[in-house]
Simulated scan of single mutants.
Amino acid sequence: MAKPPAGSSLLFGALADSGHIKQRKNGSYQMVLKGVDEIDWFTDRPDRVEGTWKPQKLLRKWDKLFASSEPNAQATVEVEDQRELFTFEMLKPKMESGKMVFGVKPLSDSSKDKITGLKNMEMSDISLFIDSVSIDFRNRIYPRPPCFPDCRGEDLSGMQFQGTNLVYGNFTDAKLVGANLRDSIMVKTNLTGANLTGANLHGAKLNQVNLTGANFKDAKLNAVDWEIDSICPDGTKHAFLKPCTDEQLLLQSPCTADQLNLA
């Protein structure tokens, strides 16, 4: 049976025979799906792996998979010979008499109108897509931060991103003091001006990453996989497949970022 690769980002899909949306007394919405036999998972690029879980396995892993925030999801359904598509925040599912039941929170007024319009209607030929999470090399789950992909100026000090896929994330001026980024994957990630003092980047993959003006004081950089065209903190590119030097990392430079016009 296929297993998710280390550091990969997973997305989920499922099919259901039928279902309906109901509104509870407190005004919230629930979706009830019948005939969900399996959950398909597949990796986000650049990995190309897929597999299946039983619904119960997704339920067991839910709290770890989505520890930082509930996922966004999208459903396509057939109602009275018409295909309908709506997007929502998906709350933790449960199984009741073989049916998958979960809370649905509209993401916008338009999605609320659509969900309200589908309330109590019989739906068939249902397709469900669930947003991604990332896992580390020991198959423990370390999700992306709630701010991802736009984490500019966020305080993420001490947070756990071991093995997390941070591809295309924007962490400009973010505070990542003491953060655990071990084995994380960063491709075209923007860390301009980020404070990585004491951060652990052991084994991290850096490819076309912008580190201009970033602070790496006391950071652990051993075994970092420096690939191509990353910009070092001093604004220069590192040599092909070679790490940024201490000078490029500003670890031996008496100049400040202001003096180097990097602030």
Rank of each mutant, 00 (worst) to 15 (best):
A2E: 14
K3F: 14
G7Y: 04
S9Q: 12
A16R: 01
H20R: 15
I21Q: 02
Q23L: 07
G27W: 08
G27Y: 09
G35T: 07
V36R: 04
D37Y: 12
I39C: 02
I39V: 13
I39S: 05
W41G: 04
F42Y: 14
D47R: 02
R48Y: 12
G51D: 06
K54Q: 14
P55I: 11
P55G: 10
K57V: 12
R60S: 15
K61L: 15
A67V: 04
A67E: 07
N72D: 13
A73P: 00
E84G: 01
L85Q: 11
F86L: 03
M90G: 02
K92L: 00
M95C: 01
E96T: 10
P106H: 14
D109A: 15
D113N: 14
K114Q: 14
I115S: 06
L118R: 07
D125L: 05
I126L: 05
S127E: 12
D131I: 01
V133W: 07
V133R: 09
S134M: 07
D136H: 00
R140P: 00
R140Q: 13
I141C: 02
I141Y: 15
I141T: 13
P145Q: 10
P145E: 06
P146Y: 03
C147E: 04
P149I: 03
P149D: 10
R152L: 02
E154D: 05
S157M: 01
M159T: 11
Q160I: 00
Q162P: 00
T164E: 09
N165Y: 02
N165R: 09
L166P: 00
V167F: 07
N170I: 09
T172I: 08
T172F: 00
D173N: 15
D173R: 11
L181I: 01
R182L: 05
D183W: 10
S184L: 02
S184Y: 07
V187T: 13
T189W: 05
G193S: 03
A204V: 09
G213L: 04
K217S: 10
D218N: 15
L221H: 05
D225I: 10
S230Y: 05
S230W: 03
P233M: 08
G235R: 09
K237E: 14
H238N: 10
A239R: 11
F240K: 13
C244V: 02
D246K: 14
L249N: 03
L249S: 06
P254I: 12
C255V: 08
D258Q: 15
